[in-house]
Design a protein around this nucleic acid. Structure first.
Lengths: 136, 136
DNA sequence: TGTACTGTAATAAAAATAATTACAGAATGA
DNA sequence: TCATTCTGTAATTATTTTTATTACAGTACA
């Protein structure tokens, strides 16, 4: 994973938690994260799709936590943003004529799933509330 | 991690294990992985630096496993190739004027280290020999 | 001494990521 | 009602990362 979606999402969620139910604009969030507001809004669309946040259009609009921070664990956040496999692309196309190349992707995938489960298991032990507590 | 260094390295090591001590050319390795030979040679330089493989220059040259496959565990391979953090870049520069932005990288790093340890712990349970066995 | 390799640098191409611009539409409130 | 301030979203451009390509010196072999 070499994009910044996980840290960005977690940053957004933390700020929303700090806001204590008040609506926060994408402009403000972008200012704290120091990225483009459009990227924030895209990420919010994704977080919304997963039920973590809600948003309000129009003047005075913005977004807010849609669930209790205790009910959002970091594994769920991870799952909501993950795109690549954890240990690198398996989108390569090894040579099917080679006995190793032919089946390596299958074995890599097993390995990835197993490793990813260990990661997810670890992340699931911490909620957004736990994480946000560090800033208080 | 969105480059392919881990799967490439593991693929190389697996092929070298299959070769049973015989020297294998970067051309052949590249053919099985289906990537450029120069990239293979770079990766081999790295694997060599970490003591996993040896290589021989000149005609009839190539590379070979420098350790018993049972003595190479996948966590070591992971450590040898990792560049990014596991959960995405923390190279961003959040706004230091924001109380959250100011300290989030520190907390993200703790989170990353913890999560990465879980991953490494999982990978360390499997050796190259275990992995290569799947192809036999 | 030609051939087949590695090692390595330099460059170019491709792909992924992020920023920017633009604007329609929603909610607010003066 | 109408200017203002937001979101939602598409389209485009810029930047960064990753990979491929080209080139060639040096090494070992036969």
């Amino acid at each position: 994973m070499s994009n910044s979606r996980f840290p960005i999402s977690l940053h957004i969620l933390t700020l929303l938690d700090e806001a204590n139910g008040n609506v926060v604009s994408s402009e403000y969030l972008a200012g704290s994260i120091n990225i483009n507001p459009v990227l924030v809004r895209k990420e919010i669309m994704n977080l919304r799709k997963h039920g973590f946040v809600g948003s309000k259009e129009g003047k005075g609009g913005g977004s807010f936590l849609a669930k209790d921070a205790k009910e959002i664990n970091l594994a769920e956040v991870y799952n909501a943003v993950k795109t690549n496999t954890i240990l690198g692309q398996s989108k390569n196309e090894p040579n099917p004529k080679c006995p190793v190349g032919k089946q390596i992707n299958q074995h890599l995938n097993e390995l990835y799933n197993d490793a990813e489960n260990a990661l997810i298991n670890n992340l699931s032990k911490q909620t957004l509330a736990d994480f946000a507590l560090k800033f208080k």
